[in-house]
Amino acid sequence: MKATITDVADRAGVSVATVSRVVNGNYPVRRATRARVKAAIAALSYVPNIQARELNMQRSSSIGVVVPGFENMFFAEVLKGIEDRLRQSSYSLLLACAENDSAQEKRCVMDLLARNASGVIVVSPNTETIASDFYADTAGRLPLVFINSYERVPGISYVTSDECGGTRIALEYLLRCGYGHILFVRGEKSDSYRIKEEVYRAIMQEHGTFSEADILNIGAGNSLETVDNTMRALMRRMEKGAVTAVFCCNDMMGAGAVNACKRMGRRMPEDIAVVGYDNTSLSRFIEPKLTTIDQRMAELGAAAAQLMLEKINRETTRDILLENRLVERETTSCRAK
């Protein structure tokens, strides 16, 4: 028979309220008493009733997280950072996938609201959803935190990777290493791609080498087709003229670029350089290993979780900006040029 909180209290020789305080960690309990309660919990294999605890605390112990898709390792590594931080505060995750679709993203948020989530973290929110005022209306109904969104909505906390700075670091590195003709590969419907493209346009125009034809939009940037779509688009573009480098807005596109270079017989880094973005595990798994920009994904997730806890507990709203950094691997080399 399943042990109850009363059974634990009887075995430890304390009140039910004391057991509750030890389980929830919301009130101080003397060390000796806490030890007796934990010993009783272990002996009885007691599992706390989460629903009862939520009724007692009058709030859910779950935080919703919405991601665009599951194919990109970036989101998995951000999720790990979120979960590691929330676990320390006895919160669990309710995960939803927007499938790179604005309407589905709205449904995910509303479903999490209906499930009484204490708040929702949205990773790379869809630009169409933001433009629709959906989040402006929702922010007054539950705590919201955005990861990597650049359109400000009142009442929402933001943790953002400095993708402007990271893109500039990558492009200036390629130019400094002698890779003058740089293609830009992006996806659709994300502020992340738009911000990177603005930096690319500015830098290429500064150097007098900008061409609209050097910007490739491969469509969905976080799908199962991203790698192959990037490879095919690049192969078509490289057939039209000499290219010395490819900057990709994420590592999945970077993997597609590496595959394109291999099929076209272009040596990396001697003939052509490839730079990705994110520093996911994928960048280390492919050959040659991908030079990329590190977005510090676990830190992004942990920071978003911290902002969510602040909104829940203190109703505060603030922003965090994390610097990006270059990770040099085998697809680039200043010595090769």
Rank of each mutant, 00 (worst) to 15 (best):
K196W: 10
K196F: 09
K196S: 07
K196I: 13
E197D: 04
E197Q: 15
E198R: 13
V199R: 05
V199I: 15
Y200A: 12
A202S: 10
M204T: 14
M204Y: 09
M204G: 04
Q205L: 12
H207E: 12
G208K: 04
T209W: 03
F210M: 04
E212I: 08
E212R: 14
E212F: 05
E212D: 15
A213M: 02
A213I: 01
N217M: 01
I218M: 03
I218N: 06
G219D: 07
A220S: 14
G221Q: 06
N222Q: 12
N222T: 15
S223R: 03
E225K: 12
V227C: 05
D228C: 04
N229E: 03
T230G: 11
T230V: 11
T230C: 15
M231R: 15
R232D: 10
R232M: 10
R232W: 01
R232L: 13
R232F: 11
A233W: 01
L234N: 11
L234G: 10
L234D: 06
L234C: 12
M235I: 15
M235C: 12
M238S: 00
E239H: 11
G241F: 07
A242M: 08
V243W: 05
T244W: 08
T244D: 12
A245L: 05
A245D: 06
A245M: 06
A245N: 02
F247W: 08
C248Q: 05
C248Y: 08
C248K: 06
C248D: 02
N250D: 07
D251H: 05
D251G: 08
M252H: 00
M252F: 00
M252K: 00
M253S: 04
M253E: 01
M253T: 00
G254K: 12
A255M: 14
A255P: 04
G256I: 02
A257W: 02
N259V: 00
A260E: 00
